[in-house]
Amino acid sequence: MQALQKIYSRFIPIPMENIDTDQIIPARFLKATTRDGFGRNLFRDWRYENNDDTKPKEDFVLNQPQFSGEILVAGKNFGCGSSREHAAWALLDYGFKAVVSSFFADIFKNNALNNGVLPVTVSDEFLAKLFTLGNANTLSIDVEKQTITIDATGEQEVFDINSYKKTCLLNGYDDIDYLINHRAQIEAYETQNI
């Protein structure tokens, strides 16, 4: 996993609630056996007319060149539905390093963190504010300080992340390393309990 300390970027807004992982990456694109290349089909059915990737839907934000950036800002309950980690891979592969919302579905949140995509939970008011900003605005996210800032106005919120996950993100560690290092303890547990 890539370490993630700070993000300074413009953002792409999708002011819609309950964006489920079937929208982020439809099931028919889950047939790959590697983690690569899912960005191409990110939001596939919102992005293209009749499943034809030569026909972008002009009203969808990813097809509007005035919007760009490494941060996705979306309505509440982002990532609900299927546990497919392909959703996190698709966001990462497309170039997103963080998703900002006022509420995330549990499994998505874990999947994102496990891939170095930072879910930033902000208040409903802060989120609403972001949706009113023009496309030239930038945001700064600081993992160490746990802050997200609207650069133009200095408005800032502190977001939550447990200290274990924060250490992992800042250093690019992953949970598997941690678990492998604790195998002796796991074996001891097995002897006692099974």
Binding site: D174, I176, L179, R183, I186
Partner: peptide, 16 residues
């Protein structure tokens, strides 16, 4: 669980 967690269970029979 997600696929990274599937990998955790493969590696250690545990998840975080």
């Amino acid at each position: 669980i997600g696929t990274s967690e599937v990998e955790m269970v493969f590696a250690s029979q545990c998840v975080l």
